[in-house]
Amino acid sequence: MSTQTELEIVTPGAFASIQDEGRRGFRRIGVPWAGALDRRLMRIANALAGRPEDAPVIECFDGGLHVVAHGGAVKLAVAGDAVVEVDGPEGRRQLAPWRSVTIAAGEALRIRKMGSGRIAMVAVAGLEVAPVMGSASTYVRAGLGGADGSGRALAAGMRLALAEADAWGSDRVLTQPPEPDPRPIRLVPGPQADHFSAAALEALVGGDYRVTAEADRMGVRLEGAKLEHSGAADIVSDATVPGSIQVPGAGQPIVLLADAQTAGGYPKIATVIGADLGRLAALRPGQTLRFATVTAAEGAQLARAEEAETRALITAIRPLPADGIDLLALYTGNLVDGVVHALDTEFRPLY
């Protein structure tokens, strides 16, 4: 009789949860989308693990996730600028992110910390989660989705049962992952820009804003130049979407994210474009950002460009050799610089 393969959550880190593309089609009845804060990372992680791009993943923050395989081997893939370690019979070894790895029963994978950004996505081969209202995404506030359908975030001691996988093939790697994007976060003014003074939008795009400690999957409170209302700081509640920038009476903006409410009574000065929302969600408390305005048409064009970039990244994923060592990445990584050819009288570096 075969043994059930499981992945145990030893520690979930700061906050780990099951997410996918989100719960679409229910905002009209007050149900947020939820879903992965950075869909590009989710898609890359799944592609590295040989899974459909919209399959459920483990989304985690700032390191601390520690998982162990039980009952059989488990293939995992990590997307994000993470410091990854694997504990096995030969001790602990560090593993590059942006690749998959197959760990044997009893072996563990840890995400020690993050470099740039604070979000990592971990795809797990064989992870099947029953959808609730069409999605496996965890929405804690309403108790929807997640590993057992109750809306709970992942917690120490939980075990995720994994389906028996087909032939996995070799592990995969993305040798040239996306670089951190230093550009301003782009936004489209409105829909209630007329509720603010003429100087408010100029202030929003004219200086730095700092991410406060009040930042989670629901939204990010920012601190910077005060945005003056032209009248009352409240409106009759109307629809919001991820990316909406609400401004309460204190004049400090709040950017809504995936778990945000579907309606609100604060006027919205602008909306962050979808192509940049993942970048904003990945900022840590204390980091600063700047905004820049674009038109709605430019925002749509940027969305198409981001999709093309994502497709190119996924297409660039390739199998690792059987020994798991990516020689091409080593040879092209310029590990030693300043090397010169003995016969090159001009002493030009070879790399």
Rank of each mutant, 00 (worst) to 15 (best):
V336D: 01
G13Y: 12
V236G: 08
A82D: 10
T11D: 14
H70M: 09
A163M: 01
M133G: 06
L127Y: 12
Q4K: 13
G219Y: 01
H66V: 07
V294Q: 03
A296T: 09
G143N: 13
G64N: 10
I185W: 03
G190T: 11
E59S: 05
L7N: 09
G264Y: 10
G151K: 00
E8L: 13
I269S: 04
I119Q: 09
L48K: 10
L174S: 03
I245F: 03
L204V: 14
A308T: 11
R210T: 15
V31P: 06
G264D: 08
T3F: 12
S17R: 14
F291G: 01
G117L: 05
G243N: 08
V78M: 12
G151R: 04
L174C: 07
I245Y: 05
M1Q: 14
R210G: 04
A123V: 01
A308P: 01
I273G: 06
A34W: 02
V188R: 09
L320K: 06
A233L: 07
E298C: 09
D208Q: 11
R99T: 00
R51P: 03
K268Y: 03
G71I: 07
K268A: 01
R51Q: 11
E223W: 02
A79L: 07
A77I: 03
V247R: 02
D326P: 04
V205D: 05
V124F: 04
I29Q: 02
F61D: 03
R23D: 12
S100E: 08
E6H: 15
D208V: 10
L144N: 02
R27N: 12
G117T: 06
V129H: 00
L204P: 11
G88A: 15
S116V: 11
